[in-house]
Amino acid sequence: MTNFAQLFFDAASLGGLYAMAALGIALIFGVMNLVNFAHGEYIAFCVFALIVPSTDAVAVMFLGRAPAVLLVPLILVIGGMIAVASEYAVFRHLRNADPVAMMISSFALGFVIRNVLLATYGGRPKAISLWPELNTPVQIAGASVPLLQVIVILTTLLVVAALAFLLKKTRLGLEMRAAAENFTMARLLGVRANVVITGAFALSGALAAAVALIMATQTGVADVRMGGQIMLVAFIATVIGGLGSLPGAVAAGFLIGGVSVLLQAFLPLEARPFRDAFLYTLVIACLLLRPQGLFVPASAKPRV
């Protein structure tokens, strides 16, 4: 267990996955104070979009058959579309509602999506052969790393850079940041609320789609429950990072991924099944030390 390069890649790739999911949640929280529990179901939905709807045990590739150049943008668009559609159908009508009511509706929406998937595809997990060659190991710095891990790390960096560019350099980005600071004020100053919110949902859905593609390639399976675990971790990362802070979400995503891998690597065998208990204890400790999160956005400071 002395191969630190190996450990680094394991941690960074898992962290990257969490970071991307956390970004998707933080984006929406930033503009409308909504903790979107349906995010995990967006991920599952995008994975299932790869295969033909049927309850048969053997999965037949559907969109998954398209070449990567087409497939990647297509799935990203599908992810964006389901997120925007859910905003249009549900969250738009709840803008003035209590955050708790919004959160519970997002959960109910996720429940609906999950059960629609169950009814359409059956309860048996499906196998997906998506880009198996990406799992071939490559040698980097003395570590044997599946190509996919490298891609995940690079993609995360790319996505973060692209988002940073979008937020800093474009009008939409400017409006989003303004909305995240103070939504009411931003609206009064002429920020186009619907454009900003729709944009945030589209980006969030596209991020869910990216996570879906990575998970499908990594695990080779599609299961209705696959988005749940990662969504919860992402949710926690969003809070630890400081709600509404996008860099914070990314940093916390990497942090949780890293700690999780380190615990798995260094805990003794008897304690290893308790890995998540240690992880969540650290989460509580972290919250107690920094209740506002690691990176506190100005908007989160209490205004009295």
Partner: peptide, 24 residues
């Protein structure tokens, strides 16, 4: 421990508590 926090941080901490109980 948890109620030293408030708002969403407290909610997340209660979730972490649930995950700990479940794992244990």
């Amino acid at each position: 421990a948890i109620l030293r926090l408030s708002g969403i941080a407290a909610s997340i901490a209660t979730f972490a508590f649930l995950a700990i109980i479940n794992t244990v």
